[in-house]
Design a binder for these strands. Structure first.
Length: 577
RNA sequence: CGGGGCGUAGCGCAGUUUGGUAGCGUGCUUGGUUCGGGACCAAGAGGUCGCAGGUUCAAAUCCUGUCGCCCCGACCA
């Protein structure tokens, strides 16, 4: 491809709308353009990168026996109503009506469609296991699309669905996909980590792992153990209750103290000179129409995902509004606690609260708190569970070592769904004895467009993108220092022809621009290798081979140049295969 | 959805307080001089000032409404 013909508008300045580096660079280097919030056009180079990633995904899915299909984007509401997700998905789903008033949505995912297909077409155990996948646009009306391709409303996703005869076989499919994902991301040249995760709206009974590309700009927080294999999203990470040695193990007598205007944990700490570890944080949550009192230690954060999993699942679990608390308990938030509630409310205590003696909590009376509150003596929770957010430095639940924290971009997630969808949509098969049995499912997503963004987050410098070879839009760019010098052009033409013949994906910068402009553009766009053809070196029969990542320049003879580049590219492509 | 900010040429911005025929940089076009890390000179093209009402002799500027975008939070496979 000649640069003079390529639609690749580069920008000198950073567009004001772009916040994260991947977004900035994709706009500046001419990979994407925004159409509207969270929706982008892929320009030629951007689309080439997407196709590279898709191809890697395809190869790895096929290697595990996956079969590619194409599923509709416009999906009828009925299927979603059958699984209950028409309501569960809420405002995040793009909905539309046809001319007759029938309801549809733009598919945010495809469990319903695929299960419906399989239930119609799969009858026998002989057809299982079955792995079907698709790569296409998905739609989510995100509350806040942001960071360019990282969180869009329209995005490209690969979803594979596995269908198995039982839980055991389903586990094998899960492991296959887990392995395939490791290969995909390795081949894309990414530094990543698989972590235990929460299943969220997808639900299902089996386990789930998220594949996180480690990057500072990541929206997800993970903890991992430096000593063993354990790694988990903080949403999911199991917390061990830590002992508080200075706390007396014998419950003392309950005492009321006057604490005028002291509402927050910080204020309480100052006012009473108490440690946060002996304070009880009490929050009223509302799930659907029910209220719950959630208790964690003063130094801890409530993990709403755990709360929802313990109590719900609710469609809209949230912190109760102050007025709601007031109406419920005739006491403002800030002074509430589990002791002597004037109304029966379901109380759930964190593991650490269950062990607590002589703690401090609200008295359910304005401007008063209670001291020496002991769980089991002064109040009894209806349920005890792990409800809090983990923090770095806490012990690993597997081996006890101190956990470390990192940020990650979620590029993939694997779910063992069990029978959630097959039951709802009645997907059965007949076993050897002619007995009807339920199908076990799994689903496995990879955010293709997000992977592109993640790759840039992890592979860039001051001057631009540094593509890993397997997903670079082109492998090599030829830059003649001047297009007016016939000798340089003759050599450039020759190398261009040779490289194309050798199957090296090559761009030829034939523009009549000053060399600085071409170098800057090439660095910005991120071609892994550059062949620079200049007068001085050419006089000795040499050209320069520039490595974008190391910035090393090597003088090589014109004769060997094409072969050498070909060899390097082949080695790079083979590296993680 | 709550809080904040912004919509003026492809991109980055000034002009709005105090109404008076729209500007700078960059990019783009043409000519010339240049030519190894975003050159220089000259001449050009390019904007219903987000949109709709209103006030006024006169609106980018004041008023009302509306749409969109960005950031923080909440939320989220």
């Amino acid at each position: 491809m000649k640069v003079s013909q390529l639609l690749n508008p580069t920008l000198r300045e950073v567009p004001a709308e772009a916040e994260v580096v991947s977004h900035q660079l994709m706009l500046r280097a001419g990979y994407i353009r925004k159409v509207t919030g969270g929706i982008y056009t892929y320009l030629p180079l951007g689309w080439r990168v997407i196709k590279k990633i898709e191809q890697i995904v395809r190869e790895e899915m096929d290697a595990k026996g996956g079969q590619e299909v194409m599923l509709p984007i416009v999906q009828p509401a009925e299927l979603w109503k059958e699984t209950g997700r028409w309501e569960v998905y809420g405002p995040e789903m793009f909905r539309l009506k046809d001319r007759h008033g029938r309801e549809f949505c733009l598919g945010p995912t495809h469990e319903e469609i695929i299960t419906d297909l399989v239930k119609g077409e799969v009858r026998s155990y002989k057809q299982l296991p079955l792995l079907l996948y698709q790569i296409q646009n998905k739609y989510r009306d995100e509350r806040r699309p942001r960071f360019g391709l990282m969180r869009g409303r329209e995005f490209i996703m690969k979803d594979l669905y596995s269908f198995d005869r039982d839980a055991e076989s389903s586990k094998i499919s899960y492991q296959k996909m887990y392995d395939a994902y490791e290969r995909v991301f390795k081949r894309c040249g990414l530094t990543f980590r698989a972590v235990e995760a929460d299943a969220g709206a997808i639900g299902g009974s089996g386990g789930t792992h998220e594949f996180m590309v480690l990057a500072e700009s990541g929206e997800a927080k993970v903890v991992f153990c430096p000593a063993c294999e354990y790694a988990a999203n903080v949403e999911k990470a199991e917390c061990q209750p830590t002992a508080i040695p200075e706390q007396d193990m014998v419950g003392e007598k309950l005492t009321e103290v006057y604490t005028p205007g002291v509402k927050t944990i910080d204020e309480l700490e100052d006012f009473l000179g108490a440690k946060k570890t002996s304070l009880i944080k009490a929050m009223i949550y509302k799930g659907d129409d029910k209220y719950f009192l959630i208790l964690v230690r003063g130094d801890r954060e409530i993990n709403e995902i755990k709360v929802n999993n313990v109590l719900g699942p609710f469609i809209n679990l949230r912190l109760a509004e102050p007025q709601e608390v007031e109406e419920l308990l005739q006491c403002e938030p800030g002074f509430i606690g589990p002791v002597g509630l004037n109304k029966k409310i379901y109380i759930v205590a964190d593991l650490e609260i269950a062990k607590m003696k002589n703690g401090i909590c609200g008295a359910n009376k304005k401007d008063y708190h209670l001291m020496n509150v002991s769980c089991g003596e002064d109040f009894t929770p209806d349920q005890i569970a792990d409800l809090r957010m983990i923090t770095a430095g806490e012990p690993c639940p597997k081996c006890g070592q101190s956990l470390k924290e990192a940020r990650g971009i979620e590029v993939g997630q694997v779910f063992n769904l069990g029978t959630k969808y097959s039951e709802a949509l009645r997907a059965f098969y007949l076993d050897e004895k002619g007995q009807e049995r339920i199908i076990y499912m799994g689903c496995y997503g990879i955010g293709v467009s997000r992977t592109m963004a993640a790759a840039i987050e992890q592979n860039h410098d001051q001057d631009g993108i540094i593509w890993p070879v397997p997903i670079a839009p082109y492998h090599c760019i030829i830059v003649p220092v001047s297009v007016k010098d016939p000798e340089l052009i003759a050599t450039a033409d020759r190398l261009y022809a040779e490289l194309n013949a050798l199957g090296v994906e090559t761009v030829y910068d034939d523009r009549d621009e000053r060399p600085g402009v071409k170098f800057k553009d090439a660095d910005l766009i991120g071609y892994p290798y550059r062949l620079t053809i200049g007068k001085k070196a050419l006089a000795e029969g040499k050209v320069e081979l520039y490595n974008r990542r190391t910035r090393q320049i090597e003088l090589i003879s014109v004769e060997d140049a094409s072969r050498k580049v070909q060899r390097i590219i082949e080695e790079e492509l083979a590296k993680n295969k």
